[in-house]
């Protein structure tokens, strides 16, 4: 529900993708649908690959990578608006998780500082944060919609511009916005709920107070970024917050090796998808036959990976969730650590 509503809230991110990333018209290139198709193939192939390897990656970044790669093949390196790429995709990708992490760290500290009651037997009753989490996770869902639904809108608008149905540089049409919002909402209900659950759980099973702090900072970081048209990855920001809030608790340590592995996967996503996208665009420019080759090759790769994954039993029941990775980074020294997750409603 919130996903659907949020799609209507803002279209800044969609404008970044459809209007800013690739130079069109004068001094740029005419984007054709084949190029976008190639970009999408690049994104999908890279996404399935990382999913197979159990690496956390951002589908939004894979999408940008694929499109950029395809555009470069189509019109050379000059067609990419590097200023926009750097200031609206790359820098936010690095900084947003850091910002969210720092704020989550401070928020956790603050939450503990405020609720700790000195002396006496008085209990802090931090269980109250559990109710707050109902709202903060709704906010995360809202933020998720404002950013990720817009990525889809941006691509559809790009296709429309490429096909000549819409003037270059204009914002997304109303029906595109509605369709994307609906698609994201349906996706969340039908299968995406699993992702939402991981996003919620990865944080909340820690403890209510840091969970609330982490979700608040995730939501505000994403909403603020969406407003300014930064296309960032919801997962990355949420991971940053999870790490930050974990650090805010006493006796926490960072597992730098795990952190490094995740960071490498994040950094690789854009160039790798760009490479695949470039390759696909190169083939697609051979004409109709090229597009058919692309489709068949892409489908084959996905099919093969699917079969391999079936053999390895990396199904949804044991797939490595991205936030679990983030959770692994922070090691919390705690006597209660090994206990089962607490039941809902039980105050600590």
């Amino acid at each position: 529900m919130l996903n659907l509503i949020s799609a209507f809230l803002s279209t800044e991110v969609a404008k970044t993708i459809s209007g800013g990333l690739i130079r069109e018209g004068e001094g740029g290139i005419q984007i054709d649908p084949a190029m976008i198709f190639a970009g999408l193939i690049g994104a999908v192939v890279w996404n399935v690959t990382t999913w197979l390897l159990g690496l956390p990656s951002s589908s939004s970044h894979a999408l940008f990578g694929g499109l950029i790669g395809a555009a470069i093949v189509g019109g050379g390196f000059a067609v990419i608006n590097y200023g926009v790429v750097v200031s609206k995709v790359l820098l936010p990708a690095v900084l947003a998780p850091l910002i969210a992490g720092t704020v989550a760290y401070l928020g956790t500290k603050l939450a503990y500082r405020i609720t700790t009651r000195k002396g006496q037997v008085a209990s802090p009753k931090r269980g109250g944060f559990r109710y707050g989490q109902i709202f903060s996770s709704s906010l995360v869902a809202l933020a998720h919609g404002t950013n990720d639904a817009q990525t889809t809108m941006g691509v559809i608008t790009l296709v429309l511009v490429a096909g000549g149905f819409q003037t270059a540089g204009s914002g997304p049409e109303f029906w595109v916005v509605a369709a994307c919002g609906l698609a994201i909402a349906i996706g969340t209900y039908s299968g995406g709920w699993r992702i939402m659950r991981t996003m919620g759980r990865g944080l909340t099973e820690v403890k209510p107070a840091p969970g609330f702090a982490a979700e608040s900072s995730t939501a505000s970081a994403i909403l603020a970024s969406s407003h300014l048209g930064f296309a960032l990855s919801t997962t990355q920001v949420a991971s940053g917050s999870a790490v930050g809030s974990g650090l805010g608790r006493k006796g926490a340590q960072v597992r730098w090796s795990t952190a490094r592995r995740i960071a490498v996967a994040w950094l690789l996503t854009l160039p790798a998808a760009a490479l695949v996208g470039a390759l696909a665009a190169f083939v697609a420019h051979l004409g109709i036959a090229g597009i058919i080759i692309d489709t068949v090759a892409g489908a084959l790769i996905i099919l093969v990976m699917f079969l391999v994954s079936r053999r390895n039993q990396v199904g949804h029941h044991n797939a490595i969730s991205e936030l679990d990775h983030a959770g692994e980074i922070v090691k919390i020294k705690s006597k209660k650590k090994k206990k089962k997750p607490q039941q809902v409603g039980v105050a600590e």
């Binding site: 910002i99 969210a100 720092t102 704020v103 989550a104 401070l106 928020g107 603050l110 939450a111 903060s136 609330f212 702090a213 608040s216 900072s217 505000s220 970081a221 603020a224």
Partner: peptide, 9 residues
């Protein structure tokens, strides 16, 4: 981000 999250929390 900083201000809004800290105010909320």
């Amino acid at each position: 981000t900083l201000v809004s999250a800290l105010v909320v929390v």
